[in-house]
């Protein structure tokens, strides 16, 4: 199924289409296609009768919407107060130095993507990261190196 068909199918699910359903539609598209793209914005705009600039403005406003596709391993790195105090920054530095990965980016080979989040609700175990919904506690660069190595070898 092509991307356009998939988007059409998602739009079909919303029997009552107006601008109120914009965010749920975008969420659905993102969860099924991995990210938003120009094609999605244009199709949604046509269907909801909204200018694409408004949809793009909204999608860039919220952190949850991405225009870069997620990597095979999507890393969520907590930078909330607690994790930050315990040294989450060094994990970020490690990723940037070793994988050339900054917040919101995906590595060229599509293996890893990074999203810095503000709290994952596990403050007493910080610094916390999650990779593809699997959680890792008390992560320091040494531990992160092993996790990444394991994932690359898989």
């Amino acid at each position: 199924m092509s991307k356009a068909e998939k988007i059409e199918e998602i739009l079909e699910r919303y029997s009552y289409l107006d601008s109120k359903s914009l965010i749920p539609i975008l969420q659905d598209i993102q969860s099924e296609l991995g990210s938003l793209n120009e094609e999605a914005i244009v199709l949604v705009g046509q269907r909801l009768n909204l200018p694409t600039s408004k949809i793009y403005g909204l999608a860039t406003f919220y952190n949850q919407f991405k225009f870069e596709p997620k990597g095979k391993n999507h890393i969520c790195l907590c930078n909330g107060t607690s994790c930050r105090l315990k040294g989450a920054k060094w994990n970020m530095v490690y990723l940037e130095e070793n994988l050339k990965l900054k917040n919101g980016q995906t590595t060229r080979n599509g293996q890893f993507s990074l999203e810095v989040v503000t709290c994952m609700g596990a403050c007493d175990h910080g610094p916390v990261i999650s990779i593809n919904e699997e959680y890792y506690r008390e992560v320091d660069p040494e531990k992160l190196k092993h996790i990444i190595n394991d994932l690359t070898q898989e």
């Binding site: 600039s53 793009y56 403005g57 860039t60 406003f61």
Partner: peptide, 9 residues
């Protein structure tokens, strides 16, 4: 025409 919009936050 709605060419412009605030982008990012």
């Amino acid at each position: 025409v709605s060419t412009f919009e605030f982008v990012n936050r």
